[in-house]
């Protein structure tokens, strides 16, 4: 459904200190990244902060800052996904549930915002209003929450509003960027369950997260990223026991560092980190 073929992304930065501070340098944020996402599947993309997970989402949506240097190809349903096609499909076929709750308009009531999302996806306004109400009810937001402003919502409610916006757009590819950060177990279960439901309807869901443990129960495949590189893509069933089914040392280390596993740094991860620093 979505294929990423050797995507390389570079962003400019300026050196600090006094040597050639005027000179623009390029930091490689994604390095020859290739991956395929299929419909009906939740595909988790897991990595530490700074691994380039969110940038991957922006690259797919075409929301990168202008001076970015992008190489490689994206294919959506077999056809190349270029900037103009991204603009056309964004909000209709491609939806992003952003990481920051500040993505909600602070001056607009919840239901109006969701109706706008439906209208942007091409629904007539009367229908959009109805659809927004339905979607919000579906995500268990009551009449009071539907008429609330963003600052009156709790973190979990705001996440569900953002999910409802992706839901009404009837997008076929939904990218959720860290949807479970800062939620208690009950709320997290609801938000992740909503994503699983979208995938069960035949949509493609990309779940970007650092929270490997809670991504596993709902994900079909897990891709581990590090420093802009793809380390490994494994079925989520590979993450069990001592992680022997995992092929790379880094994903094993990530798995074993979880508190319900060994909660220990393996010698491999230490060694790898030292070489990384050098």
């Amino acid at each position: 459904m979505l294929t990423i073929d050797r995507l390389t992304l570079q962003l400019p930065y300026y050196a600090d200190g006094y040597t050639a501070w005027w000179k623009r340098r390029w930091a490689t944020c994604l390095d020859a990244f290739s991956l395929t996402f299929s419909p009906g599947e939740v595909h988790a993309v897991v990595g530490a902060s700074g691994a380039g997970k969110s940038l991957l989402a922006y690259a797919i949506m075409g929301l990168l800052p202008t001076p970015a240097r992008l190489n490689g190809q994206l294919y959506y349903q077999g056809k190349p996904l270029d900037a103009s096609r991204q603009r056309r499909l964004r909000g209709r076929e491609l939806a992003l549930i952003p990481q920051s709750l500040s993505a909600l308009d602070p001056l607009v009531r919840t239901q109006r915002q969701v109706a706008w999302a439906a209208q942007r996806a091409g629904q007539p306004s009367a229908h959009a209003w109805h659809a927004s109400q339905q979607a919000l009810t579906h995500y268990q937001l009551d009449a009071r929450a539907q008429q609330a402003y963003a600052h009156e919502l709790s973190g979990g409610m705001a996440r569900r509003v953002l999910t409802a916006m992706a839901h009404v757009s009837q997008a076929r590819l939904v990218i959720a960027d860290e949807p479970s950060v800062g939620l208690d177990p009950h709320q997290r279960q609801r938000v992740l369950g909503a994503l699983r439901e979208l995938a069960d309807q035949g949509k493609t869901v990309i779940l970007i997260t650092h929270d490997l443990r809670h991504a596993l129960p709902i994900a079909d495949h897990v891709t581990i990223m590090r420093g802009g590189k793809l380390i490994e893509t494994a079925p989520s069933s590979a993450f069990q026991g001592s992680g022997a089914a995992l092929t790379s040392a880094y994903s094993q280390a990530l798995w074993l560092a979880l508190p319900d596993n060994a909660f220990a740094t393996t010698t491999i991860s230490r060694r790898e980190q030292e070489t990384n620093v050098a």
Binding site: G47, A48, S49, G182, H210, L212, A253, L258, T265
Partner: peptide
């Protein structure tokens, strides 16, 4: 107060250690 929720497992572990 929830100091490691936004960290990946390895970074979380190193902070606590």
């Amino acid at each position: 107060d929830e100091i490691s929720t936004m960290l990946d497992p390895i970074t979380q572990l190193e902070l606590w250690q």
